[in-house]
Amino acid sequence: MALVSVKNLSRVFDVSKPWLNRVLEREPKAFLTAVSEVDFEVEPQTTYALVGESGSGKSTIGRMLVGLLKPSGGNVDIDGVDLANETDAAKIDAIRSDIQMIFQDPYASLNPRWRVRDIIAEPVAARGGKTDGLAEKLLEQVGLSVKDAGKFPHEFSGGQRQRICIARALASEPRLIVCDEPTSALDVSVQSQVLNLMSDLKDNFGLTYVLITHDLTVVQHMADRIGVLYLGRLVEEGAPEDLFDAPKHPYTQMLLDAAPRMDGFGREATPPEGEIPDPINPPSGCAFHPRCPLAAEVCHKERPVMRRLGNTRVACHMAEE
């Protein structure tokens, strides 16, 4: 059974100006649909990657998965428990300690006034658990030294801080870790260290990852299954080998073409057309149609539904086997 099951998930933000400005300027309320009717499932002990550019809603989905944001529609089930609608406090508490998150900015995600020991132990201490030696044990597991426990975050480099974040995420012995751009603030050589650490920990502790990133190379290396998002909608989902070798959605194709390649010396590819549209007024029908080389009449009018094509799922009117 899937560990994470996301059904018809939507999130709308009210981005209206203050009431008085709206009245004076005669503007209606404005809503931004950050996530729109997204479905996917994550099997235990796998890595599911959510890929997309800015405004794709990938971080919003991540925050809904861990319960930092409430969905506007649809639901997120983690091991059969819907955090947003569950009323049994014991169940909520149990599920909370099963979910953890690793953030993008290793500088902002550690409280600068706390010692590393207290930072790492907090998830356990907050529940009144025993924390003796916990931080030291976890520091060793993420490749830092026992004596780092008494230091403050500013004494560490970006990569080391991300290791501390990982140690904190492991403290409550979670099953699911949502990683929001875990390496995009890091240098390449440090990125490889952190990604290797994440792979090792996944094997050792039987973790499940939801990996949120814009970096296709990281995804290709880490993911067991990939969901591609565009303007808050899931446009294609499949295993890395299918997605990278034979992308079915024209947006996925475009992303792959646009990503710079290490062997692309002097490559003169035609860059993709246009930019990501304003999410407050998304295009009608398929959100990608204004930039799509395959766009037909139907794409302007009807929003494509997710359908299964071989091993992948794709939301495109034009996609074929």
Partner: peptide, 24 residues
Amino acid sequence: HGLMASTPLASKGQKRLHQIPGAM
């Protein structure tokens, strides 16, 4: 060499990425 090898692209198909020990 270490820098090039540690990009995920260069380690295509490998379970672990090449890593340079330590930090600058």
